[in-house]
Design a protein around this nucleic acid. Structure first.
Length: 636
RNA sequence: GCCGAGCUAGCUCAAUGGUAGAGCAGCUGAUUUGUAAUCAGCAGGUUGCGGGUUCAAGUCCUGUGCUCGGCUCCA
């Protein structure tokens, strides 16, 4: 007999050889139906597995994220089985579960098109109906090599050969389909209740662009059609928040064929942008930053010295002036460094914080451009901080605090990544270790979770990145803190220390918004175009009922305008419903309906974007409400 | 850059290889309206761009630009 310690504290006894599935059945038939996998002694395991001994058991249903991965992973196997049935000879690469779905990469003579989806889905349903049991087998490396050689699975062989010898290799079988796979998996194929293929894409084998491009099929699956439909509906809703769509609908910004990757900001978009910059300047002044502006075009020799010429050339644009080579700046740091060198600096000035809203140009590959999120010209809310080595940790924490303040205002949640030394870089090992350790220490002291991206740092130093999500949960890097010992060295930057001698300062490069363009893209999707009052391009729209009320409307407009409220009047000869509909679609925060009643009583009928008609108010009360909301940057 | 799919009026979309159309927006007029669309009329196009096949091309072929979804890369 084995003893199982259940999640709820209960102990259960079973004869040796009992499977986890049987345990689930023993507890309740409903649980057995919904179970996806188990966690036995903290290890995710197949339901089909036999209890190996005493231990702690948790039975997972689809609600658990770990179970969702198992569910989608099995789905990807079903896809692969269907593909190999319909197009024999297709080679399997990888087929993992991903957030909200799965994919499988294939190497096939057949070129997949969306028209194949129907056929494939039908085949997958057949496999599901057949209810093949999914069996795990552990085999030796030699057996694995023989098996996959025989099946012509070159990519699987490459995996096997990379594994250390005498690793136990697991394979999963369902019907005539076999895949090299660590598992775990569902007990049988009929557990998949609703499955749908979503899209096709190319993907390099092992994510390396020097390798062959495989065909990737994306899909998703759920334990019921209702859950799938619900997911698809939410996806459609999320697409309505796409900043490219909203940017056009709300006349905020556009990207045109004439300027691929070079966005146009329209008058309403500029209001948002200017408000953000105003806020930025206020907060940076409070935090002890100075502001400068450096040229967009600078001489080649500067970029050679900074290392950009060697390390960043493929991302840069060039031009020539009077037969001399110039580069369009891809970063602001060299310009700031030239400013630093205009004076002799004392340690007493440190930390010296110099900000710049710098417009940079970078040549990005055409395939990566994406609305405002990924462009070829963008404005960084940059700042460079020059300081003493022992000021590093505190200063990084200061920047952290500012990131929290800025993102908190918009109710953004973010995740942090630490990027370490890349292959193509400059500076010594000691420099990099010191810089990376400082960043790590600041993160540890701050007590936040972070992910490490080995080899993803800037060429001059490691960095901490802050990532925000768009409407489809794709993440975009916004804020970043980069620690740099290299540039001060290269440009021979110095300060006069307490001892009267010259010393080398340390430098932080940092942005909070990241790029104003990207940040506005994220903001637009986050608020679905319904910007908080302080950012809204039109804050109040006045809607007179008839021409009789135009005079009063104009009086109110002028009053609000004098208080710097962004207000306009819709005095077209349309019915009030028409005007309101348009105001709602433009997501204007406040609408004032002014008819004979209001004119007579000298008050306002207020309509809020989210709440609809909230009744009559005095002008004074309304103004107070607006000013409070603007001042406190209230979000709903 | 690579793989795949697209590109038709300002916007969203129709149109077996056979006369390019609708809704919204715009303009003109009527209407003076009480919380998400008043009515009528007018105008709007080298179907991304270039070449080819055909009696005939928005539609088929080809080159190219851009967009979208991924991959790689990145703020």
């Amino acid at each position: 007999m084995v003893t199982l310690q259940m999640k709820n504290g209960e102990e259960r006894l079973y004869p040796a050889g009992t499977t986890f599935m049987q345990v689930a059945e023993d507890i309740s038939s409903k649980l057995a139906q919904n179970a996806v996998a188990v966690v036995f002694n903290e290890k995710l395991t197949d339901l089909n597995a036999e209890i190996p001994g005493d231990g702690a058991l948790e039975i997972l249903t689809f609600e658990d994220e770990r179970a969702q991965d198992v569910y989608r992973h099995t789905s990807s196997h079903i896809l692969a089985q269907a593909v190999q049935k319909l197009w024999p000879g297709t080679k399997l690469a990888v087929g993992p579960a991903i957030d909200k779905g799965f994919y499988y990469d294939f190497d096939s003579e057949h070129k997949f098109t969306p028209e194949d989806f129907n056929k494939l889905e039908k085949e997958m349903k057949k496999i599901i109906q057949k209810n093949y049991p999914i069996l795990r087998r552990e085999i030796s490396q030699a057996e694995a090599i023989e098996l996959f050689t025989q099946r012509g699975e070159d990519y699987k062989l490459e995996f096997i050969e990379d594994l250390p010898e005498d690793t136990v290799i697991s394979i999963y079988e369902q019907g005539d389909f076999i895949d090299l796979c660590a598992g775990p998996h569902l007990p049988s194929t009929s557990r998949i209740k609703a499955i749908k293929l979503m899209s096709l894409a190319g993907a390099y084998w092992r994510g390396d662009e020097r390798n062959k491009m495989l065909q990737r099929v994306y899909g998703t699956s759920f334990p019921s059609k209702e859950l799938l439909d619900d997911y698809l509906y939410k996806l459609e809703e999320a697409k309505k928040r796409d900043h490219r769509k909203l940017g056009r609908q709300l006349d905020l910004f556009v990207v045109l064929d004439e300027g691929p990757g070079f966005p146009f900001f329209l008058p309403k978009g500029m209001i948002i942008r200017n408000q953000l910059e105003k806020f930025w300047r206020e907060e940076h002044e409070k935090a002890g930053y100075q502001e400068i502006r450096t040229p967009i075009i600078l001489n080649r020799s500067l970029w050679e010295r900074s290392g950009h010429w060697d390390h960043y050339k493929e991302n840069m644009y060039f031009t020539s002036i009077d037969e001399q080579d110039f580069a369009i700046k891809p970063m602001n740091c060299p310009g700031t460094i030239l400013v630093y060198r205009q004076n002799l600096h004392s340690y007493r000035e440190f930390p010296l914080r110099i900000g710049e809203m710098g417009l940079v140009h970078r040549h990005e590959l055409s395939g990566v451009l994406h609305g405002l999120m990924r462009v070829r010209a963008f404005t960084q809310d940059d700042a460079h901080i020059f300081m003493l080595p022992d000021q590093i940790i505190d200063e990084i924490k200061n920047v952290f605090a500012m990131v929290d303040l800025f993102y908190g205002i918009f109710d953004f949640s973010y995740h942090i990544e630490l990027s370490t030394r890349p292959e193509k870089c400059m500076g010594s090992d000691e420099m990099w270790d010191m810089a990376t350790d400082s960043l790590r220490q600041a993160l540890e002291e701050k007590g936040v979770d972070y992910k490490v991206n080995e080899g993803d740092g800037a060429f001059y130093g490691p960095k901490i990145d802050f990532h925000l999500k768009d409407s489809l949960d794709r993440t975009w890097q916004c804020g970043t803190i980069q620690l740099d010992f290299s540039m001060p060295e290269i440009f021979d930057l110095t300060y006069i220390g307490e001892d009267g001698n010259r010393h080398r300062p340390v430098m932080i490069h940092r942005v909070i918004f990241g790029s104003i363009e990207r940040f506005i893209g994220i903001l637009t999707e986050h608020f679905a175009g319904a910007f908080p009052l302080w950012l809204a391009p039109v804050q109040v729209r006045i809607m007179p009922i008839t021409e009789r009320n135009h005079f009063y409307a104009e009086e109110i407009r002028q009053y609000l305008k004098d208080l710097n409220i962004r207000v306009d009047v819709d005095n077209r000869s349309e019915k009030i419903g028409y005007k309101i509909r348009e105001g709602q679609m433009l997501k204007i925060p406040y609408m004032l309906v002014l008819g004979d009643n209001e004119t007579e009583n000298r008050n306002l009928s207020v309509r809020k974007r989210r709440d609809g008609d909230v009744g009559a108010q005095s002008l004074e009360d309304f103004v107070q409400l607006l000013q409070h909301e603007i001042k406190n940057k209230v979000i709903f």
